[in-house]
């Protein structure tokens, strides 16, 4: 199984290492042709404005939208913003394929970034060490979206819509590969129905 990691900017090497430690083959995606034949894609954390602009400059928006119609795709932090349908007033390029309303930088500036142990539906073995860095949250989710984790204030920080997955935090920075394993299992179930 070959998984792509969008490598325009951000923490793509951390995702690559996690996937490789689980036995997946990984390809870095910077141009549309790099998507050919992949079984799944991760859109990493980074600066969502930068990733969006670079995706537009190199004609990636439509190929990415097409890819996400049938192939498992997981966005972390900036990747969650990029997948969302609605981010309020901010103007930046979005794929708009996940029925989420996302609030960028929901917690404030870097000084408010935090770590917390999080219960996530579908992730067995106890709470997950979740790292939030200038993180977004989803304030609402459409009917087709399963909410997997919320904070105490009810904001949504992990969600699934069929073969699409979004986390507001950074599993690629945690010393815990359970969500990467979950995503590989999802990709395997889609590629061999």
């Amino acid at each position: 199984m070959e998984i792509g990691v969008l490598a325009l900017q951000g923490a793509f090497i951390e995702h690559r290492k996690k996937l490789e430690s689980l036995g997946a083959t990984v390809r870095e995606v910077r141009l549309p042709e790099h998507l050919d034949g992949l079984d799944g894609l991760i859109i990493p954390g980074g600066e969502s404005t930068t990733i969006g602009k670079l995706a537009v400059s190199y004609g990636l928006l439509d190929p990415l939208r097409e890819f996400t119609r049938s192939k498992p795709t997981w966005g972390t932090c900036a990747g969650m913003i990029f997948l969302a349908k609605d981010i309020g007033g901010d103007r930046q390029p979005l794929l708009g394929v996940m029925d989420l309303t996302v609030n960028r930088n929901a917690f404030g500036r870097q000084i408010d970034s935090f770590e917390v142990n999080l219960d996530i539906a579908g992730i067995e073995g106890g709470p997950f060490p979740a790292i939030f860095i200038r993180a977004p949250v989803a304030t609402s989710a459409g009917a087709g979206v399963d909410v997997l984790a919320r904070l105490d204030d009810q904001s949504i920080v992990a969600a699934r819509q069929g073969h699409l997955l979004a986390t507001a935090f950074h599993p690629e920075l945690s010393d815990d590969a359970r969500i990467h394993r979950f995503f590989l299992d999802l990709a395997a179930s889609v590629s061999t129905p």
Partner: peptide, 13 residues
Amino acid sequence: TVKRGLAQMLKGG
């Protein structure tokens, strides 16, 4: 982790 993590998000930039 959180301090180093922001720099990790800036990589490739």
